[in-house]
Computed example of a mutant assay.
Amino acid sequence: MRRDGAANRERILLAAEQVFGTGGAAASTEEVARQAQVGIATVFRHFPTKQDLIEATAVRYLGKLEGETRRLTGEAEPGQAFASLVRTLVSTGATKMALLNLLPGDGYEVAGPVTTAAHNFLDAIGMVLERAQSAGAARQDATVDDVSTLVRALAHVAAPGEDEAVERAVGIVLDGLGVRR
């Protein structure tokens, strides 16, 4: 792919993350094109259907979250790394849920790259959780599914301007997970 084509693709995916992450199913590819500052034909040249664009956006977003999560495995204090992960996932959860809700099933059932990206992301969460558990900084019986459920619940109710209440709720969840922070 030519350099300008790759740059256009990246701008489209960044715009799609914003547009679909906030607008959900009502969001349009025309708005993606406008925010990416490209023509609608350019969007469809890279992504023949809206579903292709949504899937590519979800893969990119999950990959970004996976990278941030894997970075935390190198943090010195496992409990703090896990607490940071939960906070990050809650703050980014609304966008992730909006993107996955646009996919068939629960977003984890789509074949191909989305499924791979979702499993890689969940594996990365597991690495951070296991590290915290090994250090005695998190409950031994907590699972990735537990963390995912709690994070989705917090992200679902987190509203702009309620940072203090959300942080308090995150603290309660971390306490329940036995996280030493």
Rank of each mutant, 00 (worst) to 15 (best):
I12T: 05
Y61A: 13
P48V: 04
V128F: 01
V38K: 06
R45E: 09
V170H: 00
A58K: 02
G67T: 13
V59S: 01
R181T: 14
P104I: 07
A16L: 09
V151E: 02
L14P: 00
S28D: 08
T49I: 04
E164W: 00
E164C: 00
A169D: 14
E17V: 10
T95E: 10
S28F: 00
D106F: 05
I125S: 03
L174N: 06
T69K: 03
I172V: 15
A111V: 10
E162K: 09
E68T: 10
G74T: 13
A16G: 05
A111H: 08
A142Y: 00
E75S: 12
R152G: 02
R87E: 11
A7G: 06
D146R: 04
M1T: 14
Y108Q: 10
R2Q: 12
A16I: 10
A58I: 07
L99W: 01
P113I: 01
G21R: 04
L13Q: 07
A159H: 11
L14F: 04
P160G: 15
T22N: 11
A27K: 12
F121L: 12
A137W: 00
R11C: 06
E167K: 11
V32Q: 02
R11G: 05
G105H: 12
G176T: 10
M1D: 11
V179F: 01
F121E: 13
V114G: 00
A94M: 09
A81F: 08
D52W: 01
R168E: 14
L53R: 02
L103H: 11
R3M: 08
V157K: 13
R34A: 13
H46R: 04
L174G: 06
T92G: 08
M1Q: 14
V86E: 01
R139C: 03
R87D: 10
G105F: 13
R3D: 09
V59F: 01
M127V: 11
E109K: 11
R181S: 11
N8D: 15
A98Q: 10
T143V: 12
M1G: 15
V173D: 07
L72I: 07
L65T: 04
D175K: 15
R11E: 12
A153F: 14
D141F: 12
G176P: 10
A169C: 12
A135T: 09
Q80K: 15
G126I: 06
L89N: 13
R180P: 02
A158Y: 05
A83W: 02
R180Q: 15
G63N: 12
V19L: 06
Y108M: 13
L174E: 06
Q133N: 05
G23Y: 03
E130F: 03
V19W: 02
R2M: 12
A111I: 03
Q18F: 13
A153D: 06
A83V: 06
F20H: 09
V128N: 02
G79V: 03
G112T: 08
L150K: 01
A56G: 09
V157E: 10
A98G: 06
A155C: 08
L72S: 03
K96W: 01
T29I: 09
T49F: 01
F44C: 06
R11P: 02
A36V: 06
R181K: 14
V38N: 09
